[in-house]
Amino acid sequence: MSENPKETFTPPPPPPPPPPHTLRSRVRSLAPTMTRSVRAVAEAVASDPAGCARLTVTALAEHTGTSEATVVRAARLLGYPGYRDLRLALAALAARQESGASPAVTADIAVDDPLADVVAKLAHEEAQTLADTAAGLDLAQLSAAVTALAGARRIDIYGVGASALVGQDLAQKLLRIGLIAHAHGDPHLAVTNAVLLRPGDVAVAITHSGSTGDVIEPLRAAFERGATTVALTGRPGAPVAQYADLVLATSAPRESELRPAAMSSRTSQLLVVDCLFIGVAQQTYETAAPALAASYEALAHRHRAPRQEPRR
């Protein structure tokens, strides 16, 4: 048997091309990591899928002031094997828009927007974000992550800022079904715990940008010690993926002055957390169900209104 646990790990097969309707959200998520020329191609196809679908690779390169190689790189970065696959996705997206199946994307929230408009815009963006995340989620990677969590001796979860809140949510859910899970928002505690992990343990890093050093450092320590590592990120090609056995991609609404990605990404992260939890609960049902029932019973009295003595 190999001494290195990473040698026995077989990664899932590469994911299929993403659904056409997730193209805009992928461009928004990946744009900060793109070069200027690649971003020009990506933004062009996202803003005019019908027009770009009619263009050859040479014509699109001329249209965007780039090169054919840049167009191919943009297609691959967006998740398509080549420009031909991207072109087919653009045609499908254009047909979807013409049929009215996809609602128009709402404008950014303005400072002087009435509260009713804010509610409507946020509701639309949240619903679209959840749909994009669900459609783009790699089920093979998700299934592997569920299996790893279900059989883990110990689970460490790393996140800072808004992602730390998502990590706490995941840890609390797993604890309620009897698993040993801890969320670490303090980067020092995260690293000191990560170096104690070993094969059979799982480390989960949550970072929308995928480049948060305080999250990458403990994940790297866990990876080097043989733990199964999972990255939950909005940018699958970001540095955090270098130390992740499994990558779960999320979507996020468009950034705005009042709603940066670090805050708006929480909705899609919580969806993936719920998917992980339900999957683990299903795999461990015989022990999870009694543990969850016991936790409900233990807390039930705290959710009842205190008994009031009758007035005299």
Rank of each mutant, 00 (worst) to 15 (best):
D169H: 13
P15D: 12
R154K: 13
H188V: 15
P32H: 05
R36A: 12
D132H: 07
G65F: 15
A205L: 06
T250M: 03
A110L: 13
A190E: 00
A31E: 05
H188N: 12
A289K: 14
D201F: 01
S268W: 00
R96N: 06
A92Y: 07
T58K: 10
P11D: 10
T8F: 09
L55K: 04
P5R: 04
T233A: 05
V280L: 07
M34S: 05
R24Q: 14
E7H: 14
H21E: 14
S256Q: 10
S47L: 12
A152C: 10
R28E: 11
A305P: 05
A231C: 13
A69T: 15
G159Q: 00
V202Q: 02
A31C: 07
A162D: 12
A291R: 05
L149I: 15
R39D: 13
P199E: 09
P14S: 09
L130N: 03
R87A: 10
A203E: 00
A75N: 03
H208Q: 13
T129A: 08
R254T: 05
Y296V: 11
A94W: 08
A288V: 07
D85G: 07
A222V: 05
L299E: 13
N4H: 14
L86V: 07
R225H: 15
A293V: 14
R198Q: 09
S29C: 13
A94H: 07
Q282I: 11
T133G: 04
H182W: 10
R36Y: 13
T233E: 03
T207G: 01
D186K: 13
L196W: 10
A145T: 09
V57N: 08
P114D: 12
S265G: 08
L115M: 11
A262T: 12
V204L: 05
A262N: 06
D201T: 11
R84T: 11
P236R: 02
T129M: 04
P253I: 00
V230L: 02
L78C: 11
D117H: 11
P187E: 10
A293Q: 14
D132N: 06
R311I: 10
V191N: 03
L270N: 07
H124K: 02
P310Q: 11
A244H: 03
E286Y: 07
Y296R: 12
P114H: 09
E255V: 14
Y296S: 10
P199I: 04
Q141V: 12
Q97M: 14
V195R: 10
E3N: 08
D138P: 03
P310D: 07
T233W: 03
T228E: 01
A101E: 15
A148C: 12
